[in-house]
Amino acid sequence: MADQRIEPILAERASAAASVVPASVAVAVPEARRPTRLGQLLEREHILAGALLAPTLVILTLFIAYPFVLGIWLAVSDKVVGRPGNFVGLQNFWVNVNDTIFLRAFQNTFVYTFIATALKLALGMGAALLLNHHFRFKRIVRAGMLLPWIVPTVLSTLAWQWMFDATFSVFNWTLMNVGLISKRILWLGDGTMAMGCLILVNVWRGMPFFAITLLAGLQTVNPDLHEAAEIDGANAWQRFWRVTLPLIKPIMMVVVLFSMIATFADFQLIYVLTRGGPYSSTHVFGTYAYEIAMRAAQLGQGASISLSLFPFLLAVIVFQLWYIRRSD
């Protein structure tokens, strides 16, 4: 059963949760019999579900419903900053598909997202398996691993910028002094190379979260299962593949999904490191939409670039939802 130390904390949180519930149902319930009636009501799953979902729905409706609808409206309007927009149908999207920079950004977004996510998953899984061992300084290593992910992105990206700097790159300094190169490498001077650097920084930043979340997942795996598999003669790789992976798959899927969405919409990192340069070769949707919407003040056009992602994300999510539900 659950650890004794956490029980009280949880009970407390739960009572807070419970106190919300009556508020939403109280109206219909007579004063005296409330506990039982309420109890009975909450035994019905759809009512309980409504009560549990209420706070989330309230916040999301208040804060996101209007912006969301407006965002879609922007994408089909010719809105610019300071002027009311007119409906223009799909014209913005038509402009996009004829825009070479947009197409490049489109391609970049996918390359960036898929490669970075795959690397984060692989390395994060590796890290989680390593951290799942007992070793000296375990605590400090686990804490240290999290650092890249905690440093405010804009600032850590500046540090990377300095490390990739054409003049001061520490990598170049090292490689030259070791004698591996005689001419400096221009890390951000070429579209492909710069994209590689962006992916590297993204992986560096995002991997710890994969590691820690997957580590949490690994901890739920009952060691008895491993022992049983070992007795049956499964080697470490097979045990990982057949026992561990299926068990942590639901968590893994969610982490991958969220990471993908976040990477799809990534903005800060590219904005600081290359701003889409050199020659617009590293733009992704996030940065290009920002340039158009903010710098050129064309909110409508910018929104349409942002929204171009939507169908792809939606497809991923529908698949995910179906997958998670299926495992019931």
Binding site: L53, I64, L299, A303, L309, L321
Partner: peptide, 26 residues
């Protein structure tokens, strides 16, 4: 359950670079 789950998720999909102006209104 299913549609609500999807809806909650969809709100996560709209990039902040697009959302922040209307959100400013809110």
């Amino acid at each position: 359950a299913s549609p609500l789950g999807t809806m909650i998720f969809i709100t996560y999909l709209v990039p902040p670079t697009l959302l922040f102006i209307p959100l400013g209104d809110v």
